[in-house]
Design a protein around this nucleic acid. Structure first.
Lengths: 171, 171
DNA sequence: TCAAGAATGTTATATTATATCCTTCCACAT
DNA sequence: ATGTGGAAGGATATAATATAACATTCTTGA
């Protein structure tokens, strides 16, 4: 007998219309708590950058954040400002980096550190995080069985999200 | 009962001393045949770039290739020259791109198109390609079971190769 | 209150990648 | 053999991403 492992979607709302302010607020609140518990300083800037990353369910480039951050400011922010904030958020596990897009996305389950599996829509870029712990473990095992010692896994899956598949079939 | 799937290492020599000219030559020969069969033109430039990518079992940056290519030339090559050759080699499946390093590595089994699983040593950067077809398939299934339609998978595993683990324990 | 370290600001530059236009080369039909 | 069309490569410029290095400000705790 085989145990079927159901993949769990961390951010199940990514594809459907929803009150996105809830996503943002809950992300900010959780971040606040997490940083407090760890004795890390979620400064105003870092919080703002986190909020900007969470503006959508699509990965955001550092320079997009930079532009949003600078909007309306007399003196625009400089790249290191953003990269440092992003680095902090990465370290705290509050965001993930999507290597194939050179972009960043809010982590939908920052409470426990984890390697993400990302489903990236090639059409609309909406990106969903999959909790595929067993698959990751299997990969790790495969790697380690060759004598390798795994420290990080990076898994990015590109394709079409359900919405964009529908649109494609309409045409 | 469970079937244990043994991972297959495509380039088993990556970590051990070996006559690397054999690796290069065999890669070039296979590339020649593959392109001939597909009616693709493996021009002198493309062949040279492939050879340069194969100089080691570590991913090589486009600008590294550029520098090697320009070495000794009166007029150095320009970036598009290299990127075009690399794009061609990627399309033909003769090399892979390692997104986490913005670098390229020769494909050790270019005869059949495939998604790679890469074991990247964080210390010496030696990178080995793992044939982990079943794991990839499982991941795809997990993704597709959520309504996603997978087209590409990117899997990069960082850690320590056997050699660098030994060195670390020596210290 | 002051000192130390963390965070941010500022300037400059490194690194990676692409757009565009022009020239050359090659395969093929004539 | 020769012209032609499209692919390949050369050349120039610039876009996009990321970091180095140093100055200033802020925070926290002694």
């Amino acid at each position: 007998m085989t145990t079927t492992v159901e993949p769990v979607l961390h951010e199940s709302r990514a594809y459907t219309a929803h009150d996105h302010t809830t996503c943002i607020n809950s992300a900010l609140e959780r971040a606040t708590v997490i940083c407090q518990e760890k004795g890390q300083r979620l400064t105003a800037l870092r919080k703002q950058v986190l909020e900007l990353v969470w503006q959508s369910h699509k990965p955001v480039g550092a320079y997009d954040v930079l532009a949003m951050l600078s909007k309306g400011q007399e003196r625009p922010a400089a790249p290191p400002t953003v990269y440092r904030a992003l680095d902090f958020l990465l370290e705290q596990g509050l965001i993930h980096r999507i290597a194939s897009l050179n972009a960043f996305i809010g982590c939908s389950c920052p409470d426990t550190p984890h390697a993400g599996v990302f489903l990236i829509c090639e059409k609309c870029r909406t990106t969903r995080e999959l909790d595929s712990h067993d698959n990751i473990q299997n990969l790790k095992n495969a790697a380690d069985s060759t004598g390798f010692k795994t420290s990080k896994t990076l898994i990015e899956i590109s394709g079409l999200c359900p919405c964009c598949q529908e649109e494609a079939s309409d045409e």
